[in-house]
Computed example of a mutant assay.
Amino acid sequence: MAHIIVVGNEKGGAGKSTMSMHVATALARLGHTVSALDLDLRQKTFGRYAANRSAFLKKSGLELPSPHYHDLPEVDPESLGPGENVYDRRLSEAVAMLEPDSDFIVIDCPGSHTRLSQVAHSLADTLVTPLNDSFVDFDLLAHVDDDGKKILGPSVYSEMVWNARQLRAQAGLAPIDWIVLRNRMGAQQMVNKEKMGRALELLAKRIGFRTAPGFNERVIFRELFPRGLTLLDLKDVGVKQLNISNVAARQELRDLIKSLRLPGVEVTF
């Protein structure tokens, strides 16, 4: 059975697609067979990233380890059973098709609440939730008091994860390993950074997730997208000397992959 990694939250701009592409490509570079699905059927940022990579590699004559991207299969509405949801069928058919030949399936969810996202979360062995280091984004997980010191209650996204956990328990599946990644943690704004850290620590104990550092804001991520490249591809495309920012970004990716604690994965880059 493939290990399913779901990258999701219900807020756009948190870095889900960048995270998905880097995790998927890193696993492929480590020798694993990786399949990829993008459930944002409108924007398809992860899908565009993968398409850009394929086009660039073909144009440049390079062969680099890459995830295998797949669109969701179309389903004839006439084939649905009574009360069966078409999106449930499309996702279940995609996963059933990919599982036998994949070590990992990376699923990127949209930045909104959709039926596909709900179902994907219930399939997750590992759930990765990128979160900008801001109480605006934190509000997606939980409500806090006006000084950020007291958790008032879980919010909409945490409730969806809780429901996904219940469905997995009912099906006799292993619990979801949920990791919240703190993206864009600048060296400045130390007071906010400390408040966020305390709030996440409190909430982690209450609703059951781990925290890990993600990616800081870096221009390189925007520059890599049109060619579908990741931080690990730079030397292969002729970048002989990485600058300090790029070296730091590679270390962030290395730390991220280690923090996911994926089965059978040894980080060697």
Rank of each mutant, 00 (worst) to 15 (best):
A204G: 10
G15D: 05
L57Y: 05
M19G: 00
Q43G: 04
D108Q: 04
S158N: 05
R168K: 15
F104C: 00
L253P: 07
T25F: 05
D103F: 04
D145N: 15
G153I: 01
R90H: 04
G197Q: 12
V265E: 10
H70K: 13
T268F: 09
V219R: 15
F225L: 15
I176Q: 04
D255K: 12
K205C: 09
V75F: 02
R182K: 14
F209D: 05
G15H: 08
E159L: 09
A124V: 06
F221P: 09
V267D: 06
R48N: 12
N192C: 05
K205F: 14
S66D: 03
D145H: 03
P175I: 04
P100C: 06
H121F: 06
T45W: 00
C109W: 00
L152E: 14
S17N: 06
P110L: 01
L262I: 13
P154C: 02
L27Y: 00
E266S: 10
T268M: 10
T45D: 01
K44I: 02
R254S: 02
G47F: 03
L140C: 07
S259P: 11
Q43S: 09
M19L: 14
D101Y: 11
G61W: 14
L116M: 01
V267M: 13
G31C: 14
P263C: 06
Y157W: 10
R218I: 08
S102W: 11
V7M: 05
S17T: 04
V106K: 01
F46K: 02
G214K: 02
S134M: 09
V161S: 01
I257V: 15
R206W: 10
L64K: 13
K58R: 14
S79D: 15
S20W: 05
P154T: 05
N132D: 10
L202D: 07
R222P: 05
R42Y: 09
E217R: 13
A248W: 07
Y157T: 00
V7F: 00
R254N: 04
D233Y: 03
I179D: 01
F209E: 00
G15M: 07
R184L: 04
E252H: 11
F56A: 03
A187W: 10
G31Q: 12
M97V: 03
F135A: 11
P226T: 13
T129R: 11
E63Y: 08
G148H: 13
K235H: 13
H113N: 11
A187R: 12
T129I: 08
L64I: 08
D236W: 04
V136G: 07
D133Q: 09
T230D: 04
D101G: 10
R184A: 09
G83V: 03
L64W: 02
D76L: 13
F104P: 08
F225M: 14
L140Y: 09
I176F: 02
E252Q: 15
S60V: 09
I244S: 12
